[in-house]
Design a protein around this nucleic acid. Sequence first.
DNA 1: TCTGGGGTCCTAGGACCC
DNA 2: TCTGGGGTCCTAGGACCC
Length: 424
Amino acid sequence: MLIDCNNFYCSCERVFNPKLAKLPIAVLSSNDGCIIARSLEVKAMGIPMGAPYYKYKQLIKSHDGKVFSANFELYGDMSRRVMRAIYSFTPNVEIYSIDEAFVSFDGVGHNELQELALAIKQRIYQWTGIPVSIGIGPTKTLAKVANHIAKKQSGDYIFNISDKAKQQQVLANFAVEDIWGVGSKWALKLRGFGINSAMKLCQVDIKWMRQNFSVVGERLVRELKGISCLDLDDLQPKKSIASSRSFGKAVNNKEELAEALSYHVARCCAKLRQQNSKVKVLYAYIRTNRFREGNDFYHDSALHEFAVATSDTGLVIKAVKSCLNKIFRAGYDYTKAGVILTDLVQAEQIQQDFFAKPDSERNSSLMQIIDDVNRRYCNKGLFWGAQGVRQAWKPRCDFRSPRYTTNWDELMVADTAMPAKEAG
DNA sequence: TCTGGGGTCCTAGGACCC
DNA sequence: TCTGGGGTCCTAGGACCC
């Protein structure tokens, strides 16, 4: 099964504000830049996924629509609750993204699957208020196909193609670009060969597919045929960790860039330690507005390789500053900065160096304490001076809803309208 | 005026080895 | 005149996903 939350971010907003139920609503990306989640009403207005907000601001307003700045603390917490509901049915779950999970029910019959899906859907809704669509099929790719259809159907939003005959019928009417794993480039290429439906793709010669679309394409075709090539993945430590933000307003001085980059390093290192990893290579970049006309677009990046892998925020901040020294050019209006930690290794598997020292125990304890404090105080506990205090570069975020479930100061107030004597 | 952020996997080609 | 065969490792870039 593929269980996927419907318009997830929009649904999260609606759970805590039922007045939004029938209104067109959209959720914006960081810096209130792009539209990254749309309610059905907004989709019906023809607004595409990922569209720049400023281009559709008026249209949304004219339909009495409402927009929200991304509230990932809320969405992340709601996601955990949805996943907990799914795990209450089986441990065979792969959390695929913030709003979807693959679930394996090997050996369960067709009809039982249908009932099971309904029970899962109902429990998720009861526990969280989030509506989901469920696709059922013999492989991940076919479950994705089924889910795609489930979403477009009203009713119970469950679609089952575990039956072979049903698969044939569905694939014939399924556009090739809607298949999971077929992006814009491949869609064009496939259509160029006259392959325009999932059925046609299912029937191609497997060797030809391999030659033209690599092993990835071969797996895709096999999956469509019902031969499983993609297993349920366990949660693995990340191989790279990134943090970046577009600035709320342009930044032209080096000090502020250094603060922004230090902020990103601190975020990444906290995530790094959380998965018990250390980093070998740091990559830092800055850039100006890439959409602006003319040729004053400037972007550059620099790399720092640590002799011994580290997870000490202080060391990585020092490194990011030396990177910035290499790439900073005065006289530009910068609009974005970011870092990527890559070549990550597990903490107990680090390669020693004859000349350099590994992280000291003293510093490791310090990091541990900082992480504990920040977890306890919602990331408002301790930070490095290098991150700065004004943070004038912070992204715009004009329409954020309260963090209803994770922040003491923003909890929902349920009884303001109730007279005191009834409240008891 | 205004355009996001965070990931994974695969391949070709270059460099090297004997 | 004529110049083999069999490997490994690394990286940049391109494709994809949400």
